[in-house]
Design a protein around this nucleic acid. Structure first.
Lengths: 237, 237
DNA sequence: GATGGATCAGTGGCCTAGCCAATAGTCCAG
DNA sequence: CTGGACTATTGGCTAGGCCACTGATCCATC
């Protein structure tokens, strides 16, 4: 490498572990042969030699697959498929889809509407303060010409916290990365941040007034507004 | 199988792997010493001897922790904490809570209400047939004095399928085990299965009529009915 | 005929020992 | 002060081996 390369270097070069490659080869092999739940993998010794790795490495790969829930390894018996594949990860299963925006909208609508309603019922004064703070942050961001992506997330995060439901919060966190993408698209539209802020205000007011139905309605309208953008973008393709 | 032994045997006795114990010891050690993101674990050789296991086994444990996202292992450098702990798994985070029923109700309400509405919009004739089949199964189960737990799951599964949203389906699957528990409790109440079946019928009718709002309302009422049981049980404790 | 014990082959669990490869720090030459 | 070489430390992976568990089979016993 010589001087000029001041631009971005290709990659931090993520090193792949052997066990990862082995795990992928195994799952690929499973798909190819159309194996299903209950089917057996070959014995470790055989599989290891077939893959050209040591039994220790294969064992690591199996541990990984077991943790993810793809297989269950039974002492003295063998390694059995669970048919779960990678169902555990919500996100990855969806990422493959090209036109996944509508689905994200659906689930946002489902979760956030409920969250808004719960927040209206359960919010404390502290929760309210956090929500207001997020509104101020967004106000300021927009005034400075920023899109307010972070402030947007801050707001929704504050509302989620106010709902006081670990399960809902956890689930939101699970799909956070997907939602983030839709946010970016939405807030990139000219004039959209302002609209979004107004939506937030309506939601905040309903939560302040402890009115679950109004909060749900406001959140629903807000998500719908975002969906316009998404659908529009879907047509562009 | 001989007739008499119809009682339940103690347990299928789940065997614990050494690497699992090691992984737990490590996480426990992390908590005890209040280690945070960026902190290092001791070298493998040392850690292995301190824990009294071989390096190979310790390595398996680290693979498991790496897959879950607790640590990142860097060749030639060491093992570094990520501070993520186990945020990825929705379920486990909640299992710890003693009184988690209300939260399950909340998220069921959020997801299934939306799912019902979508099902009403998008259902095909095949979807409808599957839903009706589930109703018949439950009808029969109840007539035979069964609680109809499986038929209940079959129905909700059919509705979820009819919603044609992979993301929602995925999320439902993610919390399926939690919901299953709440189902068991609900359907164990005398007279409850019959009530539940009526609720299902109302939902099915709305979906058949392609009426999203009615479907959502019916599903909401259905989930509410279940929640009565749950809350009642919460007071028992 | 059914039950229960012994046996045996196949399979995973775990270990020891060792070499290879990457990293980061140090020191030295230019 | 920069760049290269060296070195200690650390993880990556392999080989080979013993032990424990599982399931099937056979056989003695009741």
């Amino acid at each position: 490498m010589t001087p000029k390369a001041s631009a971005e270097l290709p990659t931090p070069l993520t090193r792949t572990r052997l066990y990862e490659q082995v795990a992928e080869q195994i799952t690929a092999w499973i798909r190819q042969n159309g194996l299903e739940a209950g089917d057996r993998l070959p014995p470790e010794r055989e599989l290891a030699s077939r893959l050209g790795v040591s039994r220790a490495t294969l064992s690591q790969a199996l541990v990984a697959l077991e943790v993810v829930g793809v297989v269950v390894v039974r002492h003295g018996d063998g390694t059995i498929l669970t048919g779960k594949h990678s169902e555990s990860r919500i996100v990855e299963a969806i990422r493959a889809h090209a036109d996944r925006m509508p689905e994200i909208i659906d689930i946002r609508d489902a979760l956030e509407t409920k969250i808004a309603a719960l927040a209206a019922e359960r919010r404390t004064e502290d929760d309210l303060a956090a929500i207001d703070a997020a509104l101020d942050t967004m106000e300021e961001a927009i005034t400075h010409g920023d899109r307010g992506v972070e402030a947007d997330e801050q707001f929704h995060g504050a509302v989620t916290t106010a709902a006081h439901s670990d399960l809902l919060a956890q689930t939101m966190r699970e799909i956070a990365s997907l939602i983030r993408e839709s946010r970016l698209e939405s807030l990139s539209q000219p004039g959209r941040p302002r609209n979004s802020l107004n939506g937030h205000r309506a939601i905040a007011d309903a939560i302040r007034a402890r009115d679950p139905e109004a909060a749900a309605a406001a959140m629903h309208a807000h998500v719908e507004m975002v969906s316009d953008v998404a659908l529009l973008r879907g047509q562009e393709r």
